[in-house]
Simulated assay, not measured.
Amino acid sequence: MPTLKPLLLALLSLSAARAGKVPFSVTLSPHDPALACHSASTPVLTFGPPPPGTHSLAVLFWDQRPNQLSGRWLVFDLPLKTTRLDTQDASRLQVGGGKVALNDAGQPGYTALCARGRHDIYVDFYALDVPSLGVPAGTPLRKVHTLIHQHKLREVKAHLVRVMP
């Protein structure tokens, strides 16, 4: 019964919230200055606690437009205690105790949205079953993303829509 799993996860999240516990989650403000064109800083992301069995965390910020998907920022090998990534220089390869991949533009760190039109922005937050993915900072995003999916215990997403003039 494939429809029971989403319902069960929703009920678990609701019961955790009622018990005063923050569920495994990721939050991005739609007003974050890092979402402005040519921003030279990273977005602020806030995380809920990971599920049991997690050994490290990863977060992927990506932008989807018609006929194009672009990985803008990927931070991996984050320590379990990470609850927030604060804004900092977008080109850094070390963030919050974790490593940063080369993005889909082939640049180190984060690249801001600049193309006109609608952007569906997604932030994927991953709980991983290994303390490290075993690759250095600056590894291409697609390679790190493949490794994340091999070690993923759980994933949650944040989504927002941004229209660039």
Rank of each mutant, 00 (worst) to 15 (best):
V135I: 09
R84C: 06
S91P: 06
L128G: 09
S91N: 13
V100P: 06
Y110R: 03
V123M: 02
P49N: 01
A16Q: 15
L11V: 12
W73I: 06
A16R: 15
A158Q: 08
R162Q: 10
R18L: 13
E155C: 10
T83W: 08
S70D: 12
E155V: 12
A40L: 11
V95Y: 02
N67K: 14
V26M: 01
S13A: 12
D77V: 07
A10C: 07
N67S: 12
A58Y: 03
P108K: 10
V22Q: 12
H145G: 10
Y110W: 02
R162T: 07
K81N: 10
F61P: 12
L102P: 03
D89Y: 09
K21C: 05
V144Q: 08
N103H: 01
D32V: 00
P2R: 13
D124N: 14
T27A: 11
V135T: 07
P49Y: 00
S132F: 07
H38N: 13
M164Q: 10
A34T: 03
P131G: 07
V59L: 01
L11D: 13
L147E: 08
D124Q: 14
G117V: 07
A90Y: 09
P50E: 01
L141M: 14
T82E: 02
G97E: 00
G98N: 04
A34C: 05
G20N: 06
P33F: 00
L78W: 00
M164K: 08
V95A: 01
G20Y: 01
D86K: 14
L128N: 07
D120H: 13
G71V: 03
G48P: 02
L7S: 11
R116L: 13
R118L: 15
F76I: 04
L12Q: 15
Q94V: 15
P43W: 00
